[in-house]
Design a protein around this nucleic acid. Sequence first.
RNA 1: GCGGAUGUGGUGAAAUUGGUAGACACGCUAGACUUAGGAUCUAGUGCCGUGAGGUGUGUGGGUUCGACUCCCUCCAUCCGCACCA
Length: 925
Amino acid sequence: MEYNFREIESKWVSFWQANNSYRVSEDSAKEKYYVLDMFPYPSGSGLHVGHPLGYIASDVLARYKKLQGYNVLHPMGYDSFGLPAEQYAIQTGQHPAITTEENIKRYRSQLDQLGFSYDWEREVRTSSPEYYKWTQWIFKQLFDCYYNEKSNKAERISVLIEEFEANGNTNLKASNDCEIEFTSAEWKSFDSKKKEAILHNYRLAYLADSWVNWCPNLGTVLANDEVINGKSERGGHPVVQKKMRQWSMRIKAYAERLLEGLNEIDWTDSLKEQQRNWIGKSVGSSVLFDIEGYENPLEVFTTRPDTIFGVSFMVLAPEHPYVKDITTEKNKEAVSKYQKASVKKSERDRQSDVKTITGENTGAFAIHPLSGDKIQIWIADYVLATYGTGAVMAVPCGDQRDYDFARHFDIPIKNIFQDVDISEAAHTDKTGILKDSFFLNGCSVAEGIKKSIETLESKGFGKGKTNYRLRDAVFSRQRYWGEPFPIYYKDELPCVVEDQYLPIELPKIDSYLPTPDGEPPLARAEKSSWNYFSGDRMEFNTMPGWAGSSWYFLRYMDPKNKNEFVSKSKSEYWKQVDLYIGGAEHATGHLLYARFWTKFLFDQGYITFDEPFQKLINQGMILGKSSFVYRIADSNTFVTKGKVNGKEIQSIHVDISLVENNKLNIEAFKEWRKEYANATFILEDNGDYICGDEVEKMSKSKFNVQTPDDLIQKYGADTLRLYEMFLGPIEQSKPWDTKGISGVHNFLRKCWRLYCSPEGVSILREGQDVPKAALKTLHKTIKKVTDDLDRYSLNTCVSTFMIAVNEFTEQKCNNLEVLDKFLILLAPYAPHFCEELWMKIGNKEGSLFESNFPIFNQEYLTEDSFDYPISFNGKMRFKANLSLSLDRAEVQREVERMEMTKRWLDGKTPKKVIVVPGKIVNIVF
RNA sequence: GCGGAUGUGGUGAAAUUGGUAGACACGCUAGACUUAGGAUCUAGUGCCGUGAGGUGUGUGGGUUCGACUCCCUCCAUCCGCACCA
């Protein structure tokens, strides 16, 4: 074999390892470039072909930037805390650390096979104590900070305490859930327990009794982004609402900055839009309604305060705290029945039941703050307790949901829009002129909103307000395999562990299940099993999966630092990630949380940038291509695709390893399953059995999973790298189909022949006169590849390489100078292949990657003539080679003189002739 | 329902600021060579038509000398959100 990829690839992998070729360090003489992959969870099944897509892309770009002279940081690590290892531990009793270690080894060997240029000395693992020490440390900083809305950043709790001591909390503007107001004197009179409880309402990491998504099957709570359509993201188990004391992160405080920050970063619109949606900002007003015979006013949030005179009833969430107090005796029974029913409903049920209108009248009345009218108060579960104030003012003429509710329960509908018919539906557009609205009469929507807020504020019945859908993130999990909290309890009061005792390591326990009384697994640990123990007990919860992944990109900069999570000088050198590649499924989880932590660390001055990922590319999902055989119903006879017509058949998934280019390997198929051993076949006329195919998600049950290992075995890593890039644009989802991989492999072989004789000896010559054609091909290729890489168009580069090799082959090019440069162009894609040829053609020492990326020179591409497409009425008819020195008029004259032109004009006179020099001629007649 | 993305040959796709639609591959057809290999080489391959030619980038319209590209309408597929007040 001429091109022995197996030998070559293992040779260069060991060379790179032996020479530490990819070790990087800070170098102020060079400009930095930080390329990052989303690190994987090391699962037991290893890498599938979808993973490397992003890794190959980032590796190509990392190598390209390195050749261009950048100091490239390109690290890799493992998000190694996670459920599967723990589930496995529960089943087998084996410590999850052991399983994790094994899985990581497998991942590492798969990654090594692909020839990535990672600096493995910088590897991080979220589950290693050296790493999670700093996750715990960051948690401590969050615990010790609150969000000051005046300075618009996180500040220390000590600053807050000073403020409390000086002024109480009356003038404070800070994100909190504190329900009481107190003066400086009152603060001082509180005992330490009460003080701590109050401070807790301000901390960015805090304990609170909150409604959480509880997944009984997983035995843990889940964050909102881990719940999809009422089921757990992992495993698809049902999720119910439960009130529990949990650690939370006050991410809501950052809602506005997380929203604004999106304008500064280069992410796709769809991703930014998803985050905007998730944050869910709405601007409006809060309005206070007095309740007849009740001391507290009812606060609602509305985005349409201009429609305040259209209010015809109020609706509270069934869980609203006022309900029990204000419901009249007569309505008590019905209301409490309704409440009970809605608590039982899971969020999923509430969602799927959008069409059914339900609700119950409390019998109480609110007083309209501006008109003084009496307004019925209802409860209904379309109002969510967790959004806004859990209460709405219903304006049926302007809101379809309120309209339907009013119709259903026969509540009067007041029309406050001029010349608008609301007999069939509400007027939901933000248009129209108000009427029957006192001082708002004649106002447009925008004027009405402004004026109504002014009036409400001046009368003390409300004020302008912005609401966010984003909720604080639950931060504890009732699990073993996660970061322990640096927290112990004294009299059930949480206390932080001093820095010197970090990390708090996971203690040994006898079983990874919850305790019989429902405590998390850590409650099983003996006091002596903890490497640090204080107070009455340690925290039994562990941190969620997103804790470690929210800051790992920073640790890569300084992975071995024992004194800081990252040194200031190193984070100042490497700064943000310049290019981040990974899947879109992290839109509202990891990518939001990482932004949040980055902003926090920025606020506290630990880093100098507040967005983690400047440019982000979402690689598309790789779908599987399944193959089918067609069995004639109730028989053991299989009919080829071309002869199915009309027969009654069953499609059966067949393992894709038995199929090549839709052609079934019949012998292998017979051996695949016992029941097929005696199968008979109806074949195509040429004797083949052709399978059907369909694009589906990759899954074991569909026999369409493709691991990179087989392909590397068969074609080599360089072929796989080129092929994955060749498939299409990186961000597009596409079916995985090995059909076509041979084309890419053949390209490498053809390229090899350009450099070497069949014996593997270089056939290149140094030439004094470099052929013009070869130079032209080379520089055309340099230009195209550089441009394409700069716009992340990785697929088109591969075509460009193919064209170049085709042209060089045709030119019989054997010029060392030209082909030497071409190797550098190709090297980011096929590093082993290029290193080998680079050495063979005479570069004896070192690695190709120490050289420089070729620079494009226009000189070699300049032509003196051009093959003009000559079109008539916009249709290209023929081509004419004309000198580029001709001006418009001269070109026109030349073209008009031509025989072909006369023929196409067919005696008619051109009305107009458009000449774009160097581009096109268009004759209009 | 709202928001985002995508629609180009038998297949993956290309066409970067409007300027030769289908590059480059796969597959297929015919042929050459070879020890009948998944090797290599040659020719062909959007569709209709023997041909000249016609036609063609999801649909219908518009702007333009010229539209895959810009504008409007509709359709389909995928993704996200969804009683959010």
